[in-house]
Write a protein that binds this DNA or RNA. Sequence first.
RNA 1: GGUCGCGUAGCUCAGCUGGAUAGAGCAUCUGCCUUCUAAGCAGACGGUCGAAGGUUCGAAUCCUUCCGCGAUCACCA
Length: 595
Amino acid sequence: MSLQQILEEKVKKAVSDLYQIELPSVEFQPTRKDFEGDVTVVIFPMLRFVKGNPVQIGTQIGEFLQENVEEIAKFNVVKGFLNLVVADNYYLNFFNSILSTANYGYAEPNSKHAVMVEYSSPNTNKPLHLGHIRNNLLGYSVSEILKASGHKVYKTQIINDRGIHICKSMLAWQKFGKGETPETSGLKSDHLVGKYYVAFDQAYKKEIETLVAEGMDKAQAEKEAPILLEAQEMLRKWEAGDEEVVALWTMMNGWVYEGFDTTYQNLGVDFDKLYYESNTYLLGRDVVKDGLNKGVFFKKEDGSVWIDLTDEGLDEKIVLRSDGTAVYMTQDIGTAIQRVTDFPDINGMVYTVGNEQDYHFKVLFLILKKLGYPWAEKLYHLSYGMVDLPSGKMKSREGTVVDADDLIASMEETAAEISKELGKLEGYSEEEKQNLFRIIGLGALKYFILKVDPKKRILFNPEESVDFQGNTGPFIQYTYARIQSILRKSNLDAKDFSTALEVTLDLHEKEKELLKQVQLFPETVQLAAENYSPALVANYVYDLVKEFNSFYQQVTILGETDAEKKRFRVLLSQKVGEVIQSAFRLLGVDVPERM
RNA sequence: GGUCGCGUAGCUCAGCUGGAUAGAGCAUCUGCCUUCUAAGCAGACGGUCGAAGGUUCGAAUCCUUCCGCGAUCACCA
């Protein structure tokens, strides 16, 4: 039973004994730093039931608790706030109880229903950029958080491997590529494909210019530029299964996948199952026809199929074109159903997709509900804000993107520069150093992105890039490394680490604060899972680390002469290190032994 | 225009189901390495919580209106 649960009962008992009144609930909050105490009971809400002076009521309840509850050592009352000082041995007992707990803070694996998390839905015509990085990191982290909260999780990706965009890259390569391959060009394979996507756009723009110069109006030129018509023709050929086009498509998509794999690997994200739109884009059509019979959808005169959502305050939405072909919505309906078929145990899906698609998902979920799928109630759009540059939106075609691979590389370089300046790595091999720079560079990047509430947009300034000091990944990693250094020097053996501590120890104020923060970890994991928010984990671990550094500065650990006190401080440090590592694992960030 | 989201210190962000004097980091300034890693610690400076009303004993938090920024409202994805 948690402290708060114990106290809630006791406060109710106090009020019942003192005033013969049954309280429906009691309001607690952590005591503010400027007052003495650990937990505060707010008296104001009780005044509705208990008439009287809040200070007097608080004092009487405080006296009752001090006398009747062994966990309460002292109390004081300020205005309507009853501040309770919790006894040291309560915290020591708590610490003993988690001393040997592996994966402290994580719930029993697979104790909750299975969830599928979709993240990263790239187009296959260009390399990944900073926007994809946010998507990937968020989706991966939320998956790990859901796992830690007890869910079984399937990570998935929907790869948009068909459509006009990839045809543009293919056509430009055919026209201007002269048979260039990743091998002959020396370019990373997805970047090579991206190069031709840009080349297409340049050629297209030039053709429009020419047409406009010849007297055509701009809108018409944009529709009739020969190279665009060619690309559209190529898409038709692809849909018709033209061998040559399909072979080119297979080859160039292959290049892109190879490049994506490297980027994913560098980012440290992975997937349990892949879905390709080229396989699923026809899936939804039968379902739509079914829904048409059931009256969920209706057909217009031209043969197109729609759903009327005006009762829900939305518009009409098309689900099938007049020529019978699928739109985005159709294929998403199909994909959702396919996933439930493939993984019958899932009871919920999370779509990690930018907030520009809020409306799409609102409609998609409504349609699935109207089609009568019970699991439609358990769908969640993890909507996140865009990553913008000071110059505005990132645009691949115009080259104003922060490339994922470049960014990762530059983070590692910065980590290397700083490490070199600080010069603490004597004895490390070149390989160990490189590995460390990767851990730190990626840590800085991932933390920078994940600490922000997902729904807020991120402004990324490449000039200023990402900090390595203050509320940052490296700051937290540094604290972990310091703790490991203490553990190496502590000369304690395995038994010292597993034997329960004397509960008669007097706690230093900093030790108590640390224990309180450690105690919050399990509920933080649950809260982060409920809110699909890695930011809660990031902020939690930052507070923990700040608290530890303050403790580290003020209290000697290895220099302590009392053996039991020293052992406690080492063990406490070790536990804090464990929690840092566990929390960072939820963010997909590694921790170093030294730095 | 309709709908949705956001607006907190110069900048980047916290602030749980309403509670005490709104908190961090960066930047600027001041101390602290002959004790466990100074990527650190301690402190100073910095706020009409976009604006106005309302609910409440109490509002950054809930409600309404307005302002600003963004997204969306395609037989695009």
